[in-house]
């Protein structure tokens, strides 16, 4: 095969995989913004939390590497524990740092969110160390496409990544579109006061939103660990910002938009790594964020938070 085409196809797969975990983070970002209009700056750190806490849970058992036999069942079990813990942490964060400021300016909870993010990162570094941390290689990396190409890789890890993230995205969309609770969330996003008057317990809805968002980010962190095999306490900052860019790109508050935006950002990163140089990727994605916010703040698909409050 033409080596240039081969490299391009490889980066397409890389872009899709980056898009997958960015989408899980972006979903939480966009849901929270949809309801409370808060840029939850600490959201990316729940991704890091999911990475570290799953590492600690694995460490409690004597797990064979790579996973074999019944141990494969530990994967969903631990994922559920990680979702509960990181979702719970996000609920606590909301209760402590954001809810008391709900009546105040939009900037006040944004400032506490920045404080929360830095605090969490420092605590992660204190507990788990400030260096790059290796994640055990539980999933093998045998390339299914070996006969076809050695550059383009599709491994059991990719199956895990797509197998977790795509059902999660579909499930969340269905949950919001079809269930009673999802309807209540949409109502609260549209008009919090009116929803409260219709008998919706808005505080409960907000807590549930933070729980789901945190859980998705946490499981994304775990999948990221299994996929890439290493991570660092600070990574949530960059992933969080990239995911936020994705959410803005798709139209903040818009669930499908967040997924679309995440895959676009994933592709932009993969392609700029290949054609422009990895050292420029950050510059390009953040420039994209600025341009979107300045020229089309409602995103590609438009925002569901329709009322632009000054």
């Amino acid at each position: 095969m033409d080596p240039q085409l081969e490299a391009f196809l490889r980066q397409v797969l890389v872009g899709l995989s980056i898009g997958c975990y960015l989408a899980l983070i972006a979903l939480g970002y966009t849901m929270v913004y949809g309801i409370v209009e808060l840029i939850n700056f600490a959201h990316g750190d729940l991704f890091t939390f999911g990475f570290f806490i799953s590492l600690t849970i694995w460490g409690l058992f004597d797990v064979p590497t790579p996973l074999e036999g019944a141990w494969i069942l530990a994967l969903p079990a631990i994922a559920i524990v990680v979702i509960l813990l990181s979702g719970g942490l996000n609920v606590v964060i909301e209760r402590v740092a954001y809810r008391p400021l709900r009546g105040a300016s939009k900037l006040a909870p944004l400032i506490t969110a920045v404080g929360m993010s830095f605090m969490l990162e420092a605590i992660f570094a204190y507990i788990w160390g400030a260096n790059q941390i290796n994640y055990p290689r539980f999933i093998p990396t045998t390339n299914f496409l070996n006969d076809f190409s050695r550059i383009i890789r599709f491994t059991p890890r990719d199956i895990l990544l797509f197998g977790v993230t795509i059902p999660a995205m579909i499930g969340l969309t269905l949950f919001i579109d079809r269930t009673r609770l999802g309807k209540a969330m949409r109502a609260a996003a549209q008009d919090r006061e009116a929803a409260a008057m219709m008998g919706i317990n808005v505080n409960r809805i907000i807590a549930i939103t933070f729980f789901i968002g945190g859980g998705l980010a946490g499981v994304a962190g775990m999948v990221y660990g299994l996929y890439t095999g290493s991570g660092r306490f600070i990574m949530g900052f960059e992933f969080g910002l990239f995911a936020f860019t994705a959410a803005v790109l798709g139209g903040i508050g818009n669930i499908r938009g967040a997924v679309l935006g995440a895959f676009i950002i994933g592709m932009v990163q993969a392609m700029s790594d290949l054609y422009i140089g990895g050292e420029w990727s950050r510059v390009i994605i953040f420039s994209l964020l600025i341009l979107m916010l300045v020229f089309r703040p409602s995103g590609i698909l438009g925002s569901t938070t329709s009322v632009e409050k000054v």
């Binding site: 402590v96 740092a97 008391p100 400021l101 006040a108 909870p109 400032i111 506490t112 920045v114 404080g115 929360m116 993010s117 830095f118 605090m119 969490l120 990162e121 420092a122 605590i123 570094a125 204190y126 400030a130």
Partner: peptide
């Protein structure tokens, strides 16, 4: 290494 814990708590506490 805990300096950001102090500053993070300080920032949140002052805002609240």
């Amino acid at each position: 290494s805990l300096r950001w814990v102090f500053f993070g708590i300080g920032l949140i506490a002052v805002m609240l």
